[in-house]
Simulated scan of single mutants.
Amino acid sequence: MTVSFVLPCFNAAQYLQQTLDSLIAQSHTDWECIAIDDGSSDQTLAILQAAAQQDARFKIISRPNRGLIASLNEGIAAAQGEWIARIDADDICLPDRLVKQLDYCAQHQVDICGSWIGFIGERSGEWHTPVSDAEVRLALLFNTPIAHPSILARASLLKANPYPDDAPHAEDYALWCHIAATTSARFANVPDVLLHYRTHAGQVTQAKKAALLITAQRVREQYARSALPVALQPLAAEFAKLAEPSRILTHAEWAWMVDFFTQLIALRPESRGALGEMWLDTLQRSRGVNVFDFPRAIKLALQMPPPKAERKKMLKQSLRLAMSDYVWRKVKP
Rank of each mutant, 00 (worst) to 15 (best):
L300H: 03
H251M: 07
F292Q: 12
L315C: 12
Q284N: 14
P245K: 10
V258C: 14
A297P: 04
P307H: 05
L242E: 03
K299Y: 13
L315Y: 11
L249K: 02
A309Q: 08
D281T: 06
G288K: 00
R272Y: 02
D293F: 01
A266I: 03
A252D: 13
P295N: 12
K241P: 00
M278Y: 01
L264A: 02
A240Y: 02
R311V: 09
I248V: 13
K308L: 13
I298P: 02
R311M: 11
D281V: 04
L300M: 14
A301W: 08
F239V: 01
L300A: 08
D281Q: 11
R247G: 01
P269N: 09
L242G: 05
S246C: 10
A274D: 01
A240V: 01
L264M: 07
V291F: 10
M304K: 08
L300S: 04
L280W: 00
H251T: 04
L264S: 01
S246I: 10
K316R: 15
W254M: 11
L280N: 00
A255F: 06
P269L: 10
G273H: 03
D281M: 11
K308R: 15
L242Q: 07
M257R: 06
R268T: 09
M278A: 09
V289Q: 02
E310M: 15
L264V: 07
A301F: 08
M278C: 08
E310H: 14
D281R: 11
A301Q: 11
K316G: 03
V289F: 04
A266H: 06
K299S: 15
K308S: 12
A266L: 05
W256N: 09
L264P: 00
K316M: 08
T282V: 06
A266V: 06
P306W: 00
A309W: 05
D259F: 03
F261W: 12
G288W: 01
A243F: 05
K312Y: 10
E244L: 12
V289Y: 01
E253R: 13
T282H: 02
T282D: 03
Q303L: 15
L280A: 02
P306L: 07
F260H: 09
